[in-house]
Design a protein around this nucleic acid. Structure first.
Lengths: 143, 143
DNA sequence: CGCTGTTTGACAATCATTCTCAATCGAGCG
DNA sequence: CGCTCGATTGAGAATGATTGTCAAACAGCG
């Protein structure tokens, strides 16, 4: 990492570097905005390549991580360790996944939302987010 | 992927898994039993090497995965994608993690347990398990 | 227009995890 | 008691996601 400090510029408005909106960053953000679901970095990369706005894989990762740090995107892990991303404005929900066939149902639970927030506050944590995945065997796979 | 036609290591719940307790499998199971926490496969491997019961890393992974399939061990992912394992008898709890310094607090919530089970049942899912992680900024890191 | 720090991207490097496959083990058999 | 054959092991190669490297392209501003 470069030190990016000590220059005469006082551009430090809130925290770190003010992220310049380049063509590729915009492309990544738009790609994320165009899907309602979690997507892997590679998915985004493919999407962009196919969409005539090719962006280097490394840049996709960098941008995605920057967005996560900026709190504009949520990231979680699939069962096999792949990172998946989703823009975090839309309706917040969780996934009920079948261990066997992979069938996924989106579920919501105000109770859980409230509980996590409360627990976190109770321990003095702020800016709370959470990741919850439920695994089970779906009806069709039980037979 | 291979078809694994002859093997009985699938998910045959009607009959007990033909997993024979070899020296290394026992060692892995005991290592897991000796700690109350989540450990990575590499942790277990190191632990065993130091404990005069060396087991190959590949075997540790194989055994751990077998135990997970057999439902004797829980596996989840850290934020950076590493798989961590814990024998799944003991008190079930979740983690409240500081995004900034990594400080972790274990929390319990009967409500969540009940909710996940209920939701899953409602959708016809059985053999339910879940993973919940709460992220936030802890008190010390807010200053 | 030129200067300077930022951003990009091809590619190498990392790291956890899985695969390969020859050597070894172990239980039942003759 | 020694043999056979499938199960198991482990060293190292292979995989695949992610991150680091670094020279070249870029963007704002003076």
């Amino acid at each position: 990492m470069t030190s990016t400090e000590g220059m005469g510029l006082e551009r430090v408005s809130t925290e770190r570097t003010p992220l310049r909106p380049t063509r590729q960053r915009t492309a990544v953000a738009e790609a994320l905005a165009s899907v309602d679901d979690f997507r892997s970095a590679q998915d985004i990369h493919d999407l962009l390549s196919r969409a005539a706005t090719p962006v280097g894989l490394a840049t996709v990762y960098r941008t995605l991580n920057a967005l996560v740090e900026a709190g504009e995107v949520d990231m979680l892990r699939t069962e096999d360790g792949e990172a998946i991303y989703r823009r975090c404005s839309e309706t917040h929900h969780h996934h009920l996944v079948c261990r066997s066939c992979g069938a996924t149902i989106e579920v919501e639970g105000p109770a859980v939302e409230r509980w996590t927030t409360a627990i976190a506050a109770e321990h003095g944590y702020s800016e709370v987010s959470h990741a919850l995945e439920i695994f089970g065997t779906c009806g069709s796979c039980q037979r």
